[in-house]
Design a protein around this nucleic acid. Sequence first.
DNA 1: CAGTGGTCTAGACCACTCA
DNA 2: GAGTGGTCTAGACCACTGA
Lengths: 237, 237
Amino acid sequence: MDNKYLQIYHDYAGKIESGALRPQVKLPSEHELSQQYGTSRETVRKALHLLSQNGFIQKIKGKGSFVLPIQQWDFPVSGLVSFKELSAKMGKPSRTRVIELEAMAADEELASQLRVNPAEPVWKVVRTRTIGGETIILDKDYFLQDTIPELTVEICEDSIYQYLEEVLDIPISFAKKVITVEEPTPEDRRLLDLEGYPMVVVVRNYVHLEDATLFQYTESRHRPDKFRFIDFARRHG
Amino acid sequence: MDNKYLQIYHDYAGKIESGALRPQVKLPSEHELSQQYGTSRETVRKALHLLSQNGFIQKIKGKGSFVLPIQQWDFPVSGLVSFKELSAKMGKPSRTRVIELEAMAADEELASQLRVNPAEPVWKVVRTRTIGGETIILDKDYFLQDTIPELTVEICEDSIYQYLEEVLDIPISFAKKVITVEEPTPEDRRLLDLEGYPMVVVVRNYVHLEDATLFQYTESRHRPDKFRFIDFARRHG
DNA sequence: CAGTGGTCTAGACCACTCA
DNA sequence: GAGTGGTCTAGACCACTGA
């Protein structure tokens, strides 16, 4: 069951994403919305703030809130979106292949990435992503076994994120991504269809839980021509 | 003059960024802070929300708010940060060279990028960025003349952002970045020290004003080995 | 001028954590 | 149980917009 402000948020996010509300359209005023939803204005404002933060609307003082012009590929904007959601939104046939799934002890480098002691038990998952017949993404995930006791090939082929959130109910809180461009490793060359591209885009993802512990480290390695990253940034004080 | 919540935000952002507040340190409770600042709890919460959104703190229900472990290079996290601020934070000697500054009419492609009519008057600014003796970034900016009547080489060598915000007092609201990796153009090869790298990282930046008009389009072209992008994403409903 | 969003208040109740 | 953050309310005043 959603909170009130999340209900309002999802109502309008859905309407905008589905196109039921066209760009430039003016939303009801905060006063009106609070009456429609039978709630206080501050609660409405919380929902509108979220909508504006996520690029759905733009609030203009003295005028109102307006639906932003947003292309299909604008979703998702920066965030913790799984490959499964992403490829579903893109509407392209895709396949995930699990190359490796093993329980291991963290070596020194990994332990420092995860900020835990060496030899800490972790899951290592290596997967390739194939879209339109070309294998263009290599994902290497490391999870603390502490948090995830069980992991199977079936789960990895589907969506680990979904498993974490819906089945294990693990509250993922925030993630930091660092994007760089690097030379391909022999592993990249072996597993990806690099077609001679001499570089890969590496997205390193540090995922934290709600209690601020770091529990996952991911390297996502992309063929450069197929890589696209969208970031939506707002100004604040 | 800052708002109350921005004052609290800047107080703590400064303390954390300067290292006066170490990671893991617990902030005073919201109740305490509201007394210290002589304000309501909701106002304190607004400030803490901003701090948490910008990666400074982590709030944990039932426990409190804690300073996040943040390395030097974590700042800035994704946002509208100018090259001047960035190189200042990195503490490296750097130089901006203005290659081209001209008033022109938008051609068709640019007009579509800026979502204006063709032949709309725009400023075109081309600059290179040199860090540590290597020219590794090529920036191409286009501004609507409508918004910026005057632009000089001196301003472009300093910081256009600073000029917009502090001198012209133009309220920049939000920006969308799209990051891709592409083949270098002849211009890239001419102006950048590419050292044989066969690709450039292209960051396309669409900058909007507070009234949601798009007024600037920027292409920032980076030598791949010197490119790094940090994104900080939070989970929300 | 009326309508809008931006800020702020002084409460309230809840769910969660930890001793 | 005391303390914490999460949600919510019913007001208030302000600055900005547009007719």
